[in-house]
Every structure is written in C-alpha cells, then in structure tokens.
Design a protein around this nucleic acid. Sequence first.
RNA 1: GCCGCCUUAGCUCAGUCGGCAGAGCGUCUCACUCGUAAUGAGAAGGUCCGGAGUUCGAUUCUCCGAGGCGGCUCCA
Length: 662
Amino acid sequence: MPADLRLTVDSAAHTVAAGSTAADAFAAAGISDVIAVRVNEQDPIRDLAYVPEDGDVLASIPMATEEGRAILRHSTAHVMAQAVQELFPGTLLGIGPPIENGFYYDFLPERPFTPEDLKAIEKKMQQIVKQRQQFRRRAVAAEEARAELAHERFKLELLDLAHGPGSGADEGGDEMSVEVGGTEITMYDNVVAGEQVWTDLCRGPHLPTTRDIPAFALMRSAAAYWRGSEKNPQLQRIYGTAWESKQALKEHLDRLAEAERRDHRRLGAELDLFSFPDEIGSGLVVFHPKGGVVKREMEDYVRRRHIEEGFQYVGTPHIAKEGLFHTSGHLPYYAEDMFPPMQMDGANYYLKAMNCPMHNLIYRSRGRSYRDLPLRLFEFGSVYRYEKSGVVHGLTRVRGMTQDDSHSYCTPEQAPAEIKHLLDFVLGLLRDFGLDDYYLELSTRDESKPDKFVGSAEDWAVATKVLEDVANASGLALVLDPGGAAFYGPKISVQARDAIGRTWQMSTIQYDFNQPKGFALEYQAADGTRQQPVMIHSAKFGSVERFFGVLVEHYAGAFPAWLAPVQVVGIPVSAAHVDYLREIARTFTAAGIRAEVDDSDERMQKKIRTAQKQKVPFMLIAGDEDIAQGAVSFRYRDGSQNNGVPVAAAVAEVVDAVASRA
RNA sequence: GCCGCCUUAGCUCAGUCGGCAGAGCGUCUCACUCGUAAUGAGAAGGUCCGGAGUUCGAUUCUCCGAGGCGGCUCCA
C-alpha cells in the first residue's frame, strides 16, 4: 500500500491519497481550477490524469494561462479526434496540436468534411465532454506502440521520426513533438467507467477529464499537407478553439467578428478606396480617387522622409532583359515567382520582380569613392511577382505592387551603423502611422539547404552577426526565423501589432554581400585600392499596397485626419445653407484641407449618417444660427459636437489636427 | 499550385425540385426645406462569371476555363 502524498500548491501543504486522480487531489485541497500538475521541480509537466504513486506534487497550472490553455486545447483536439473516428470509422489520424487561440487535428477521411459534418462532430464532442472521460497516461515500449497503431500509418511515421533507428530522440519544439517527444513513448487512453474507449499516441499532458473542458467551438475545415510539404498527401484539417470559460470563448469569437468588420477588402469597397477588376487580372489592384489620396499621402510622407534621411530619389523601368536578372542571381532562384518573359528583338524581357539590379546599375554608372559612401538610393519600384493563384489575398498579397525600395551601398565597416540608422528610420515611420507595438524577426540561412542560398557560410555568418547585434542593441524582442532569409542574405523584419493585436510583417532590412560581387561593384578606398561594397536592402512600408491594407484594418477605415480621403464635409441644415458652406469649404481648401460640401437633395440626418459611414473625421454643420454668428458647428467622427465655432478657428483646428497626424 | 466551397442588378443577398428573375441599399426623377446616424413616391438597372455539352427548353444538370473565399505551401 503506497503512502499518502504530500501536495504542495503555492507553498501550502496538503495530503492526498496515493492513486487519486489529479482532480480529486486538488479538490480535496480545496482548489478547483487546477488542470495540470508538476511532479518534480525539474520535470516538465508530464502527467495530469493521475497523481503518481510516489513523489511530491509541487505546482498547479491555472487554466487561464498560455500553458494551461495549450493543455486544454490539446485535450479538446483529442476529443475531436475521438468524435471524428466514431462518426467516420476508418478515418486516419495525423497530428493534433494546440495553436494560437485554438487547436487543429489532421485527418485522412474517405471524403472531405462538409459544414454539416462539422456540426455533427461538434455535437458528438459535447457528448464526450459530458461523459467525463478520464485522460489516462500510459508509457509503452516501441514495439507495443507500433502494434497498437498498426493501422495508423501517419502515427507510425511519427514514431519512426522520433524513435526510429538513427533519429534524434527528442526533436522538440515543433507541432510534431506534441505526439511524440521526450525519451519514452506514451499513449493517452480515454477511459469511462473503467473502460478504454479511445486512445492516441501522445506526449501529453492533458486535463484530468473531458468534463474539464469549459468551452469550445469548431471553426472550419481545410486541406493541409502532411508534415507541411506539398509533396505529401493532403489531409483534412479541422480547426477549433477552446477557452477556460464560456465568457472567454465569446470574447474570442467577438474578436474574430471585429477582425471581419475591419477586413480591408470589405472596407475598400465600402469606402470606395480600391478594387480588383477581373478584366485586369488576379492580384492587380486599381486605386479609386479616395484610395489614391491615401496612397499619395503615404508616398509623399515616405519620399520626404527618405530624402531627410540622406537618400536620393531615383527611377527605373518596369522591364529589363534577361541578362540583368542572371547577373543579379535572381533568375535561377526566383524564376518561378516571375511573370514569364516577353520576346522582343531577339531578347527575352522580364517584368521586374525586384529593383535592386537596376539600382546596382546606377551605382556602377560611374566610379565611386569611399567618400561617396554610404550611397543611398530610393524609389517607388513597381514590381510584379507571379504569386500562385491560391495565395493572392486582397492588398496583403498581390501580383503587382509598389515597393518603397531603398539600397544603401556602404563599406563593410559602415554596415552596422547604416543598419541601425535604417531600423530607427523604420520604427519612427511605423509610429507615425499609429503602429507602436512591434518586435523583430531575424531570418537566416537554412544550413541544410545550401542550394537555396548563395555565398559562403563564413560570409553568411558575418552578415547574420551584424544584423543580430543591431537587433539586440535595439532592445526590442527578437524572434529567430531559421531558413527564412533571401537567397542573397539574411534579413531583419519588423513585425507590427495592429489595433486588435494581429501582427504583420512589412518593413525589412536585408544584408547583401552577393549582388555587389555579381555586379562587380567597387569603390576606391582611401589607400587607393579597389574594394567591394556591401548593400543593405530596405523597404519601410514593404509594399505600399500591403501597408495600405494593414492601415485600413488598423484604423478600421477611420483614417487619422492627415490620411483621410475627405477631411471635412460640409452638411447644410437645409438647401438654403449650401452656399454658405461652399464658401467655407473654399477657405479650408485654400488652407490645404480636403473639404467637400454634401449638396445632395437629402435631409441633414441622412447626410450625417452618410458622412459617419464614410468615416469623415470632421463634419461641419451650418444653419441659420451659425450664419448669424459667422460660425460653423463641428460634429466629430466619434459623435461629439462643438457648436458655433468661428470659421477661422474651425480652419485652425482642422489644420492643427492634420499637422499633428491625429 | 493543391483541397474544399462559392460566383444572380453598382453593393449585400433571396430565388428558380430545368419553363422568358426578386428584395434592401445605391443611382436617377419628382415632391418635401428640415439643427446632429435613414422623408416619401416613382423610374431605370441583369448574356443569373465565360465556353462547350445534355435537353423541346439551361441561370438551374455535366465538363472545361476565369475570378473569389477558407486553409496548406510560399511571401513584401
């Protein structure tokens, strides 16, 4: 008979009977929301279903934490897989890890899931939850696991990967390791009334019982490649979400609804900003007059800022002969992302997918001295990339875009300072567009795929070190992205969080030692020798189109005054006041403000509604009372009012707001 | 590119179990002249995404193509 256990939770000691379930143990200790336990201080959480036969239980994991939610979500994924296999016998299992905000499980069913299937699966899951099935952990030998999983080919493959001959025992960290990880193989059995009703290869941990799942919902199903490679078969992935309370689930669903309301594709049409005519082609945008205003403001801003930061504005054509892209090294690596060539006068011309080769030719157009460096070139480069048909998405993934592309040519010694300069520039720009929460990502070469990257490992190491040092010195959080580099060099990208917490990658800074070599770029050093510069690629918006799309969503279409397509709209109380407002609008226009008068044959209330829906920052209302005082009445976008403002003061107020980018 | 779903008026969407198609908003016209989120009436507006096939007849069924949506992969 094993001795009772000591249970220490938040420094308070309790005694529980050996062999209790974790839920029983914590309930006895008067703790209700515990879902996970740690057995020994140095152990990862490894067994949640049962308090072990010996040893001390040290800590609890509350459900409303990242770790707790991951356990909850993974448990819910198991429940879903059980439901699917009960409803669709013969369906094979892939993997089912927790992810941000939820979980998924991959299946190989006989046919893809329909929305009705999802509803049925969700219902079945609710039944399983009600059954209070225990999650019971069971360590097994490799042969045992293989025998039990004989019909689950994907699970067998996972076993081979993690525990097969010649493989590392613990790859850890990625989604696969949810199933198998660590040094022992474990199965998790779902047990109800002492009977095993379902089992899955799993590292755990799990909730004590299915009844401990407070709230979940299935979201959608979609195809996903097995182990993420398009060479592998496609599985059907079902996404779900699970939360520590019904309230938390509702808040999550509300956030999704808010994101949908902000969708730039919807707002782009509602606010008459841009469209994607079929006649032009997929991923090719046309900006309407109002979108054109915003785009022009963005471009004016970034052009002015580049010039202030020492860049010289240049211009280059949209097409070039094939040889240029061979010299740059792009063609072998990038050909399938480019539009196919046009034949002309016996040469192949390509639409450019990048601007750097042309900037290199500007650099090379004359001899350069070390005194010229850093030489900073900048332009709005229209580039075309043949994105695969399934990836085109609104403004955030297009086939024709405008990059605010810059290249800084400098000596290797100057590179760190130049990169810091660019990073500061980028961060200041993001702040001016209302994005002030960000982190950095460092994308590096994938050692295992040398054919995807040019240049020596030593050069890569040097370049990566330079970027890493600057990133670390910035004090911002840094996330590593192994294998994410361009073929010619590593990069830092700035990931910005928008108003509702989503992150976007836009600005990039790339260190390139390969193109200067390919183009034989040189400068004459102080000692008279010829040296090779390095070039730093940098795009602040990334692409004007993507940044535009992100801004629409960040501001939910309510652009700050300086970006608003229409800054002021005059709304007459009745038709008799139209001329008065027209005169005032002229005063605003003369002060550089975009002002219009709504002289349509509608009521004032309707005009206010229209202006609100168009998210115009300033509505100027005028009737007899205002005319008598030589004033106007403000209605702001938030619905607040300021009546009887003298015209000159009204102009000053709007001009101030625009100047402050508010 | 791959898997699934979708495409009907300018927009959002009904609808036709195969028999010459509808609403709301928007647009236009007329009346109303109004103080902070929808005045009323009337009208115009459609190759039901394109092509081929099946059929007496196709917007509806089948196939091919284009475009979109959700993912995967990829990416500014």
